[in-house]
């Protein structure tokens, strides 16, 4: 593989946050390809050629049946072994919004809860279901990071990102699974109020259990979140940026992409 950080942004029918995700990775120096999942299924392209797999937001296959379900099924059935190898090779995956829903429903997240960093058997142990408010909502929320995810390294302050989803309420399959998530430091983002304290609706926009907004696998390399870091990549993407007119070009979400690319440079190149 070349000395460049190679990112594949995977798309299919209904993917719609691909362009801004490509823009974010390119802006932090990655070499980015955007391909339809068909190309990988037909073996015209191979995941082996990439360091980072990004599954962007959107409504894959219309989110018919349930959000992310049909692409999750397709990935599990058609690309399962490639994905297993990708993870075993120590590479990175990020799923944003619909990408997160897909990863959870394909069993890629939270992954094996019992210590080992392999991808397990794609068993679904959590879900993202219909928001408590019963409808799609686009709003800006505050997040506090925790855990040991490579994508959120150095994020110690409360950050602000937008959410835009109808099915983002995180639920683990049982108390045990939730306990394991906490013990394993797999909870990466929690919704909070502006001061970083326990949120109420709409600060927790969907009713997620334990205010969970994003989780990673036990290795910290496989990461999914409902909020959109690529939509606060630029400073002027925040609705009230005119109140600060800061010099910085970048918004709170940029560091996520930078972290991913930095990790590859450090560990995989």
């Amino acid at each position: 593989m070349s000395k460049k950080v190679k990112v594949i942004v995977l798309r299919t029918a209904g993917t719609n946050c691909d362009a801004e995700t490509v823009f974010a990775f390119k802006s932090v120096g990655a070499d980015v390809d955007l391909f339809h999942v068909n190309k990988f299924i037909k073996k015209e392209k191979s995941l082996d050629d990439y360091h980072i797999l990004a599954i962007p937001g959107g409504f894959s296959y219309g989110d018919d049946i349930a959000a992310g379900k049909i692409l999750a099924n397709e990935l599990r059935v058609k690309l399962g072994s490639s994905l297993k190898k990708f993870i075993a090779d120590g590479k990175l995956i990020i799923g944003i919004c619909n990408g997160f829903q897909i990863m959870v429903k394909a069993g890629l997240l939270p992954g094996n809860l019992n210590g080992s960093a392999d991808s397990g058997d794609f068993k679904q142990t959590a879900t993202l279901m219909v928001n408590d408010c019963g409808k799609f909502e686009d709003r800006w929320i505050f997040l506090k990071s925790s855990g040991k995810c490579v994508w959120t390294k150095g994020m110690d302050k409360v950050i602000s990102l937008p959410v835009a989803h109808g099915e983002g309420k995180f639920i683990a399959q049982d108390e045990m699974a939730l306990k394991k998530l906490k013990e394993n430091n797999q909870i990466v983002f929690r919704y909070c109020d502006a001061a970083g304290q326990k949120p109420k609706y709409p600060q927790n926009p969907n009713g997620s259990v334990d205010d969970i907004a994003g989780i990673c696998d036990i290795s910290g390399r496989i990461f999914g979140l409902m909020p959109h870091p690529e939509r606060h990549f630029l400073f002027t993407q925040h609705p009230s940026w005119t109140r600060e007119r800061k010099k910085s070009k970048y918004g709170d979400g940029a560091i996520v992409f930078q972290n991913g690319v930095d990790y590859v440079k450090e560990k995989l190149l």
Binding site: N16, C17, A19, E20, F23, G57, K135, F136, E137, D138, R139, P162, A164, H228, E230, R231, F233, L234, Q237, P239
Partner: peptide, 11 residues
């Protein structure tokens, strides 16, 4: 709020 008024990131 029910509209995804921020997709494409151009706002």
């Amino acid at each position: 709020r029910q509209y995804d008024h921020e997709v494409q990131g151009a706002g």
